[in-house]
């Protein structure tokens, strides 16, 4: 495994691009989103999960209220109909939002397989800079010599190689 750090996002992008044809598994570690240009909502499943959970929670809670007041425990409050849809909307909205935000939170962790407190790359101490101003990548597989040469040509500020 090789972990290499660069001084700028631009350098890291060049390194990633040069490694693309090598068939190695590359992962980046960056202080900020490397790929800002792409629209996040298009490239992530989290918004869809949130939308689904929100709709399910909202319509589900609406149905629960309708069942509760129409069948579970019908009670006449000042002549209001059992199916009192205007007030039901309020609770349905609140619960839908709760489900959507909860699903976004949990969905983010599930998709990224978190929590993952330790990873192999942690053996490289310099990786801590990735949450400061260092732009890092790790390479698994591929031809180590060629990968090393390619990385060196970009000019890393930190580089560590060790057998997997």
């Amino acid at each position: 495994m090789i972990v290499a750090g660069f001084g700028s996002a631009e350098a890291l992008r060049r390194a990633v691009a040069s490694l693309a044809p090598e068939g190695a598994r590359v992962e980046t570690f960056t202080p900020d989103d490397l790929d800002e240009a792409t629209e996040p909502t298009k490239s992530s499943a989290v918004p869809i999960i949130m939308l689904g959970a929100g709709l399910l929670g909202g319509f589900g809670f609406f149905a629960l209220q309708a069942y509760g007041t129409m069948s579970g425990y019908p009670i006449n409050v000042g002549g209001r109909p059992d199916f009192s849809w205007p007030p039901f909307i309020v609770n349905a909205f609140e619960f839908g939002v709760l489900c959507a935000i909860g699903a976004g939170f949990l969905g983010f962790f599930a998709i990224n397989r978190m929590p993952k407190l330790f990873i192999a790359e942690d053996a490289c101490d310099e990786l801590r800079e990735a949450s400061r101003d260092g732009w890092f990548l790790s390479v698994r597989g591929g031809d180590p010599k060629r990968v090393r040469a390619l990385l060196d040509s970009v000019g890393p500020i930190a580089l560590k190689e060790w057998p997997e």
Binding site: G78, G79, R80, P86, P87, I89, V90
Partner: peptide, 9 residues
């Protein structure tokens, strides 16, 4: 507006 009018009746 609708909800408050509906509630107060």
């Amino acid at each position: 507006q609708f909800l408050i009018v509906w509630e107060s009746n």
